[in-house]
Amino acid sequence: MKAAVYTQYGPPEVLKVKQVEKPIPKNNEILLRIKATAVNSGDWRLRKADPFAVRFIFGLIKPKIKILGTVFSGQVESVGKDVKNFKVGDFVFGHTDMRFGAYAEYKCLPENGSVALKPANISHKEAAVIPFGGVTALHFIKKAKIKPGQKVLVVGASGSVGSAAVQLAKAFGANVTGVCSSANIALVNSIGADKVIDYTKVDFTKNGETYDVIFDAVKTISVSRSLKSLNKNGIMILSAAGISEMLQGLWISITSNKKVMTGVISHQATDILFLKELIEANKLKPVIDRTYALEQIAEAHAYAEKGHKRGNVAIEV
């Protein structure tokens, strides 16, 4: 089978499309013929070992995992003898969790993993881009217990996580303000934001508005300066936080009546199913900036890494 393989950390060019051995499903696994995947921050950060600490988990000198890619949409080609939930021919989508391996024509996954039947009303590439931003945003929105009528500010509202956060917060009944650049105002309006702030013209920390929840999806805000834009007992979500932001958030949570949420998210099939239902109800729409072929994986990584993509970068396999 074809797969995008990397054997050393480095720039996008370390990714090479090669022929590798096709996997065989275990008794509790499904063999998926992947139709589409995506380039997310987790992929390009692991490719270049950024931050350096990822080397202590994924390989100090060279990567232990040779095939990246965490999201997918495709068709079940075969199933292990113990599989009960899926059958040959099913169209499915989901997340590989920490297994990666979606930059390939085939991937084996446990049937109890983060997998669900694909919504019939969207394409494979649209389904593939949903799980990364969707599950990340959903994790924090559920953790923050967002309620109808609350005011939610989403910073980085045009990105993968941000565009999902805007739509999910709306689905939970919140009044949502998105923060983005001038070029993305129309996009953020189109996915349901009640109000959009152009960060090139307005600093939300200085406009006098306060919010029940501030969701920073792109690690761009000053945590300390943004606190004054939080209501009493407000919650700040830092979905892309580094170590320093995590420590700062912990201190704020301990010493004030405001709470900062960071940390690693978990992936569950129930979350993928929840997103599927929202998609089928037209309450969650995939946002795709560009689509590349698997053979263009290096080019796709280079583009995604610039940090200016609108929504997601899809890969057709």
Score class of each variant (00 low, 15 high):
residue 3 A to L: 12
residue 4 A to T: 05
residue 5 V to A: 11
residue 12 P to C: 07
residue 14 V to G: 06
residue 17 V to Q: 12
residue 26 K to T: 01
residue 28 N to K: 14
residue 30 I to G: 03
residue 31 L to P: 08
residue 33 R to K: 15
residue 34 I to W: 11
residue 35 K to H: 15
residue 39 V to G: 03
residue 41 S to N: 12
residue 42 G to T: 14
residue 43 D to W: 09
residue 44 W to H: 12
residue 45 R to C: 06
residue 53 A to G: 02
residue 54 V to H: 01
residue 56 F to E: 04
residue 57 I to C: 00
residue 62 K to C: 02
residue 64 K to N: 13
residue 67 I to A: 03
residue 68 L to Q: 11
residue 71 V to R: 00
residue 72 F to G: 00
residue 79 V to K: 04
residue 80 G to R: 00
residue 81 K to W: 00
residue 82 D to F: 00
residue 85 N to K: 14
residue 87 K to Y: 02
residue 102 A to E: 05
residue 103 Y to W: 14
residue 104 A to K: 07
residue 107 K to S: 01
residue 108 C to L: 03
residue 108 C to R: 02
residue 109 L to M: 15
residue 115 V to D: 00
residue 116 A to F: 01
residue 126 E to T: 08
residue 126 E to G: 06
residue 131 P to Y: 09
residue 133 G to F: 05
residue 133 G to R: 05
residue 134 G to P: 09
residue 135 V to E: 11
residue 138 L to K: 05
residue 141 I to A: 07
residue 143 K to L: 15
residue 144 A to E: 12
residue 148 P to E: 13
residue 152 V to R: 07
residue 161 V to C: 10
residue 162 G to H: 13
residue 167 Q to T: 12
residue 168 L to C: 12
residue 171 A to P: 13
residue 174 A to V: 13
residue 179 V to A: 09
residue 181 S to C: 06
residue 192 G to M: 10
residue 197 I to Q: 10
residue 203 D to R: 10
residue 206 K to A: 14
residue 209 E to F: 04
residue 215 F to T: 11
residue 217 A to D: 07
residue 221 I to M: 14
residue 225 R to Q: 15
residue 230 L to R: 11
residue 231 N to W: 07
residue 236 M to N: 06
residue 238 L to I: 12
residue 240 A to T: 12
residue 244 S to R: 13
residue 248 Q to C: 08
residue 263 G to M: 03
residue 268 Q to I: 00
residue 271 D to F: 00
residue 277 E to C: 00
residue 278 L to Y: 02
residue 278 L to W: 00
residue 280 E to V: 03
residue 292 Y to N: 05
residue 293 A to N: 14
residue 298 A to H: 07
residue 303 Y to E: 03
residue 303 Y to I: 02
residue 304 A to L: 01
residue 305 E to R: 03
residue 307 G to S: 10
residue 311 G to L: 11
residue 312 N to C: 13
